[in-house]
Nucleic acid binder design. Structure first.
Length: 552
RNA sequence: UGGGGCGUCGCCAAGCGGCAAGGCACUGGGUUUUGAUCCCAGCAUUCGCAGGUUCGAAUCCUGCCGCCCCAGCCA
């Protein structure tokens, strides 16, 4: 398919601004708050912001919007940077911090007070809520609204100096308590928080709110297009209000797009944090998490994630994207690029009674069925093998294309064999299958013209290596976890992780590198675990199964 | 019942007055030493609904209906 996707609405805006000379170069920014790990929804935002800069030859900053020290930490700052880099993006210059602008922001607050546009308010949080009115009723003015400028200046200085307790006073903009847009009802600019900040230590006891900080941060960095999600749309008039009332030299504009919702997935930092805190998953980078680091560990590739973001488009709609699209994106990438190998997850012993004991035939097989340049690998073939329990039946109908007693099957890249007898214990459990090879069938069809109906994968029981394979499934059973009736914590899929300790892998897989992706033929895509894999104890994570159109 | 948004195939999404792109999913068929990949074909006489304007409307107008966001000293 010729990929010339139509321009999305943001690209249209930027192209126009550039064409009309409104801006000389597009400058965007990705502004996470360091209070959690990045998830797939952030990946879309990253793709939108960095992508816009990339497309139009501009720049994109990485800026930590760290105005609320209580929830933030250095750990998140580091993880976020690593994730952005891993996704393949390079931010312009150094990492930025909102906290680096605290003094400037404070100076602007003083300016607003001097201009009569802001005042110190003594209302408690509860009182402020009452004065704010409701969605349908206007609010009423705070009794402190008309304090003289000098008094406000003194009080603000006192707030900064630590003269007051948390919650005792706030600085508010003087706008309009009757505004239909709640954000304009004298919004809070500064609140007192006597906690140390991960970047500024104990320099400050007052911290600016998002509304008072974000637009000005953009202006300081000369951001031209400040892109955020739909829920901030109501904040735009306030964003503009600050920019118009402050002595700024740069004029950023805010644009909103619909954030990503994914079926069977949670994209809420708060809820993801709960999964981590309550031990439902092993951490933010658990392979079942929709975090960037979780997907990385699961075996997703940056290319697949970026492709996915391109596929879903950027609009002002807020729908739910089918997780099948994400799965398509990773399968597409891995099908093209992952080397093939064989791994038996549920071993059943297969003895080739006509094959010499102790003989090892080193089969040279391609690493990829259609990409010769990916090279070859050696797979040892021996008398005793393992095949998957699911690939053998004593009897079956013609739809079953695997090994059946008295019938033939092709051992992938090896011989065609014919099953002769089944060995059982006294409980009727199948212990092993005895079979014999059809001569001269490596690379050839049987000379008698009787072709096998199917192909199954296998690993030498004597030359193969044992491995641990972690088989993952979706974390939630509900298509929209937590909506409607549901508590998302009660919709967790109990089968989301199945650890296979006794899998058998072909020897070449014991020489993999952490984070190397493979297709285990007929099973799916797997990755050598980023942390736990080593040659002595190989550990693989299942990324995603092969597409399976065989319903039975 | 205040304000701000959004409604095109099961999902995502083009389209912006000239007669419904594309992708995912799904369904047939072909190739195949992965029931994978690949290939080919099918899949909205209709654009939330109802009126109106026009030779002509998903696109313009009017009125309804539905869904989402906002009453944190979170972002």
């Amino acid at each position: 398919m010729e990929n010339t996707p139509a321009a999305n609405f943001l690209q249209t805006i930027v192209a126009q601004d550039l064409a009309q000379g409104r801006v000389a170069q597009v400058v965007t920014r990705f502004p996470p708050e360091p209070n959690g790990y990045l998830h797939i929804g952030h990946a879309k935002s990253i793709s939108v912001n960095f992508g816009l800069a990339e497309t139009f030859g501009g720049r994109c900053n990485l800026r930590f919007d760290d105005t609320n020290p209580e929830k933030e930490s250095q750990e998140f700052i580091e993880a976020i940077q690593q994730d952005v880099r891993w996704l393949g993006y390079t931010w312009d210059g150094e990492v930025r911090f909102a906290s680096a602008y605290f003094q400037q922001l404070y100076n602007w607050a003083v300016y607003l007070v001097e201009q009569g546009h802001a005042y110190v308010c003594d209302l408690t949080a509860e009182q402020a809520r009452e004065y704010r009115g409701t969605l349908t009723e206007p609010g009423s003015n705070s009794p402190f609204r008309d304090r003289p400028v000098q008094e406000n200046l003194d009080l603000l200085a006192g707030m900064k100096a630590g003269d007051f307790d948390e919650g005792e006073k706030v600085l508010r903009a003087k706008i309009d308590m009757a505004a239909p847009n709640m954000n304009l009802r004298d919004p809070i600019l500064y609140r007192i928080r006597k906690v140390s900040h991960h970047q500024t230590g104990n320099d400050w006891v007052i911290y600016p709110t998002y509304d008072f900080a974000h637009g000005q941060e953009d202006a300081i960095e000369a951001v031209t297009h400040s892109i955020c999600t739909l829920e901030f749309e109501d904040h735009r008039p306030l964003y503009d209000w600050f920019i118009e009332h402050l002595p700024l030299t740069s004029r950023p504009h805010q644009y909103e797009f619909g954030g990503l919702n994914l079926s069977y997935t949670i994209t809420s930092k708060r809820k993801l944090k709960q999964l981590v805190d309550e031990g439902v998953v092993s951490g933010w980078d658990d392979p079942r998490m929709p975090t960037v680091s979780g997907m990385r560990r699961r075996g997703y590739t940056p290319a697949a994630i970026r492709k996915f973001c391109d596929m879903i488009g950027t609009t002002r709609g807020e729908g739910v994207v089918d997780v099948a699209m994400l799965e398509f994106a990773i399968r597409e990438d891995l099908n093209e690029n992952a080397p093939r190998a064989m791994c038996v997850l549920d071993p059943l012993k297969l003895v080739l009674t006509d094959y010499p004991q102790g003989q090892v035939e080193e089969l040279t097989v391609p690493a990829h069925p259609s990409r010769e340049e990916l090279g070859q690998r050696i797979v040892p073939f021996t008398r005793e093998l393992y095949i998957d329990r699911d690939d053998f039946r004593e009897a079956a109908n013609k739809k079953y294309k695997r090994l059946v007693l008295g019938k033939r099957v092709r051992l992938r890249n090896g011989y065609v064999i014919e099953a002769d007898e089944v060995v059982k214990d006294d409980q009727d459990n199948i212990l092993a299958v005895h079979a014999h090879t059809i001569p001269n069938t490596v690379g050839n069809d049987p000379e008698d013209g009787i072709k096998p109906k199917g192909v199954i994968h296998w690993v030498s029981a004597t030359e193969g290596v044992q491995a641990t394979v972690r088989v993952y499934d979706r974390l939630f059973n509900q298509e929209s976890p937590g909506v409607g009736d549901g508590d998302f914590m009660k919709q967790i899929n109990p089968e989301s992780l199945h650890v296979v300790e006794q899998a058998w892998i072909e020897p070449s897989l014991a020489r993999a590198v952490p984070e190397q992706n493979f297709q285990f033929e007929r099973e799916g895509y797997f990755v050598a675990d980023r942390y736990d894999y080593n040659a002595e104890k190989p550990v693989f994570n299942k990324t995603i199964g092969l597409r399976d159109t065989w319903n039975n």
